[in-house]
């Protein structure tokens, strides 16, 4: 799951906590944020009538290092790995940018059309458009006058 060079044990605990929270919140439909504990990558999520939009901070990563998948119609999973760049010579004075594998699941409140998901990675920012499934879109009901 999520690993970090700096805080491996803490992350392991966070992951356990995540699992607990997911179980607790399962069925309530409120675990979109998985909040309270830091998750990687940081995301923004918003929606309009047609789609959900997700942006995620992924500096220094290219398309090949990121996998995006949709499961259970409404769960978006971001997985990947930020590679360590260990130089052959030289020494580090400071190392704050983490590296390692990550995984984050976002449970969206409505089903999405997985075939029409669009993804763009630019300047280290991943931008996703996730169209809502037809059956999930708001419908205007015509009221007939008698």
């Amino acid at each position: 799951m999520t690993t970090s060079r700096l805080l491996p044990n803490l992350w392991a605990n966070f992951d356990r906590l995540h699992g607990e929270m997911d179980r607790l919140l399962e069925g309530w439909g409120v675990d979109l944020t998985r909040g309270l504990v830091p998750s990687y990558p940081p995301v923004n999520v918003w929606e309009d009538a047609d789609a959900f939009y997700v942006e995620a901070e992924l500096p220094g990563m290219n398309q090949e290092q990121i996998q995006i998948s949709v499961t259970h119609k409404n769960q978006l999973m971001l997985q990947g790995e930020r590679l360590d760049q260990e130089p052959e010579k030289g020494r580090w004075h400071r190392r704050e940018r983490g590296f390692g594998r990550f995984q984050r699941v976002l449970k969206l409140p409505l089903p999405i059309d997985a075939d029409k998901v669009e993804a763009k990675l630019e300047h280290g920012l991943l931008q996703l458009t996730l169209p809502k499934a037809e059956e999930a879109k708001p419908r205007k009901i015509a009221v007939k006058a008698e």
């Binding site: 942006e55 901070e57 992924l58 500096p59 220094g60 130089p87 010579k89 030289g90 020494r91 580090w92 004075h93 400071r94 190392r95 704050e96 940018r97 983490g98 300047h123 280290g124 920012l125």
Partner: peptide
Amino acid sequence: PSVDILELPDELVLLVDLPGVK
């Protein structure tokens, strides 16, 4: 921003995470 600083024999290299910045 998060930063890595590497010292090589002939230079210092700074790496700075700036996601979403042009």
